[in-house]
Design a protein around this nucleic acid. Structure first.
Lengths: 231, 231
DNA sequence: GAAACTCAATCGTCATACTTTTCATGCCCG
DNA sequence: CGGGCATGAAAAGTATGACGATTGAGTTTC
């Protein structure tokens, strides 16, 4: 998932620092400075900066340096940017944005999945729904999270839309983030688990409307809970 | 919008070639090869490859070379990847995916915009709706397109969700693409123009449900029309 | 006071050398 | 005959020194 080598190490340090605002918007870095700070060569610094530039986090200009760009320019769909922001200070706004995106996308994906999931995918969803019920009762949060991620990713994949499918990773990051940061109840709510079961059943049965409705209830609920927690 | 300098030139050539399948999945390039082909130094090739790597279009491995990755790994939300794919062979699937995404996102954005757009934004939407009506009647396709893009981008921005806002550029690429490639009627359908007017009015009046409904009609219609055209 | 000019800072590119990783070959041993 | 292991080479990864191009800022000149 991560970028390799020395440029990767620079990114892993600079990315979160910029995303969290520790290096503020408008700040100017010089390449030479970064070489010294990390004890690497120009080659490495330049490659790392190029990548940050392709994410629109910074812009490099002659005679000026490497400038941190305004947040509105950032490529907020880039998986790395999402991770960095979730780890940093504006986790709240980021989770809210992602929550709204989920509300828009996941019900639609569930409806599509009910129409065109493969038999294997339907079977897998059924199995995952069972796992969720079991691990929720056992309060095994870690395993629950893993299956929850797989559940949503499978539906997004089963929608047959490659862009929805790619949001599987993003949704995974959201679920992981809110569990890691205690934004979840310590034990999954039975009602939420029940809704997952309903979504799985509806998709298995090919009932698009019911799948969409149940999924919407899930993601709207998650967003409301988040709003309540963040105030 | 584009990446600058010599690495940008490499990207502008390699990106479309990979996105269109001209350089097939699984193909292996060598850095030295690219240096020779484009008459540039190692530095430049490496920076370009790093960027392609961060889009997951290729992976670079020692002793192996630069391998084109399977399409399912590509970062399909990256603006450059979207443009490259729209320009190439799988424009059809790409437009369909984007169409579904619009159906999911834009109605939700319209509803949010009705609740929390600024006065300026409401005014601008009203003005744009007027422009659309006028230029549609005059069959001034180019101006119509420009205002249509601004209309949708303004709503996405007015939703107050940064991720929706960023899709403004993507939607712009879609609209431009389908106009350029004759996937549109030669004159905008009066009914579609009327719907834009309704969306603007609803948002100005703060009627979220009506805004959402009208916007859904627009994007569903666009998707159906696309499906009909592509067969 | 404004316009033109000079200068220096910084990124951009190139060429080259060296290092590290990893695959493939083939040898040796069981 | 087959499998594990040493050996070598191929390719990317990193480092470095040199030069070019751009551009912002200060300075001069009218």
């Amino acid at each position: 998932m991560d970028i390799q080598g020395l440029p990767g190490r620079l990114l892993a340090d600079l990315g979160p620092a910029i995303a969290s605002g520790e290096i503020p918007v408008g700040a100017v870095l010089r390449g030479e400075e970064l070489e010294a700070k990390y004890g690497v060569s120009r080659t490495v610094v330049r490659e790392a900066v190029r990548i940050l530039e392709s994410m629109r986090l910074v812009a490099s200009r002659r005679r000026v340096g490497i400038t941190v760009q305004p947040r509105s320019d950032w490529d907020v769909f880039d998986p790395l940017v999402i991770r960095w922001r979730l780890a940093g200070a504006d986790r709240g706004p980021q989770l809210r944005s992602l929550g709204s995106l989920r509300v828009a996308v996941e019900p639609a994906a569930a409806a599509l999945a009910a129409r065109q999931a493969t038999d294997d995918q339907r079977r897998e969803l059924g199995a995952l729904a069972v796992e969720l019920t079991v691990t929720a009762r056992a309060a095994d949060l870690e395993t629950f999270l893993r299956h929850d991620i797989a559940f949503h990713a499978t539906i997004l994949r089963a929608s047959g839309n490659e862009m929805f499918a790619h949001l599987g990773g993003t949704v995974g990051a959201v679920l992981t983030g809110r569990t890691e940061h205690q934004l979840m109840p310590h034990q999954p709510r039975p009602y939420a688990v029940q809704l997952h079961r309903e979504v799985a059943d509806a998709i298995c049965a090919g009932d698009a409307e019911q799948a969409e409705r149940a999924m919407r209830t899930i993601v709207v609920g998650a967003l409301e809970e988040l709003d309540a927690t963040l105030g």
